[in-house]
C-alpha cells in the first residue's frame, strides 16, 4: 500500500451495464446514497466544481473538487476528509474512476492515492470501497443491494475495535 512516499490502492469491478448508466449511478446524489450506506455524493460534476460527500444526517464527511470530468469515461476527484481530525490533517488525496466497456460489461477501476507513506486516510477508505463497489454492482445488475447500512455499520465498528486493540 505504501511505497516511495505514496499510499494507494486500486480496486476493480466488472458490472454488467453501460458506461452511461454507470456514470449516472456514480454522479446522482440520490442514487449514490442507495449503495453508499446513506452517503450521497454531491457535485455539478464538471471540471473545477466543488464536490462533497454528505451523510444521511447531513454531516459533511469529505469534500474537494472535480479535477477532471470526461463522461462517461473518466472522473478525477481531489478528496479531503472532513470528518476526523487526524485524517483531515493528511490533506488532499486523489481518487480516479475509470470506466471502460469490456464486452457486455463495464470495467470500473477506482484508484485512490495520497503523496505520503502509511496514510491513515488511505487505510480508512480502503475498507469502505469494496463494500460500496460490491453494492453498486449488485444494485445495477439485480436492482437490490448486497449489504445493508446496519451490517455496514456493524462491520465498521468491529474494524475500529480491532484497529484499536492492535494499536495498544
Amino acid at each position: 500500500m505504501s511505497a516511495n512516499g505514496r499510499s494507494s490502492f486500486v480496486y476493480v469491478t466488472f458490472i454488467r451495464t453501460t458506461p452511461e448508466k454507470l456514470w449516472a449511478a456514480l454522479t446522482d446524489a440520490e442514487f449514490t446514497s442507495r449503495y453508499w450506506f446513506g452517503t450521497s455524493a454531491q457535485s455539478a460534476w464538471t471540471q473545477g466544481a466543488q464536490w462533497k460527500l454528505v451523510g444521511r444526517d447531513g454531516t459533511l464527511t469529505d469534500s474537494g473538487e472535480i479535477v477532471e470530468s470526461d463522461p462517461p469515461r473518466r472522473l478525477v476527484i481531489r478528496w479531503q476528509n472532513e470528518w476526523k481530525a487526524e485524517l483531515k490533517a493528511e490533506g488532499q488525496s486523489r481518487c480516479t474512476m475509470l470506466l471502460e466497456p469490456v464486452g457486455s460489461a463495464v470495467k470500473l477501476t477506482v484508484t485512490h492515492e495520497i503523496e505520503r507513506a502509511e496514510s491513515k486516510l488511505i487505510t480508512a477508505v480502503s475498507g469502505g470501497w469494496p463494500r460500496v463497489l460490491s453494492n453498486l454492482k449488485s444494485l445495477l445488475e439485480t436492482g437490490e443491494i448486497a449489504i445493508t447500512e446496519g451490517q455496514h455499520h456493524d462491520l465498521r465498528a468491529r474494524e475500529l475495535a480491532q484497529a484499536q486493540a492492535s494499536s495498544t
Binding site: V10, V12, T13, P130, R131, L133, S134, A146
Partner: peptide, 21 residues
C-alpha cells in the same frame, strides 16, 4: 500489481453475510 478485494467482498456478500445476519 495490486490486490483487488472486491471479488472477495462479493463472496462475503453472497456466502457469509446471510449467516452473520
Amino acid at each position: 500489481h495490486f490486490l483487488n478485494p472486491v471479488p472477495l467482498q462479493e463472496i462475503y456478500d453472497r456466502w457469509i453475510s446471510k449467516f452473520e445476519r
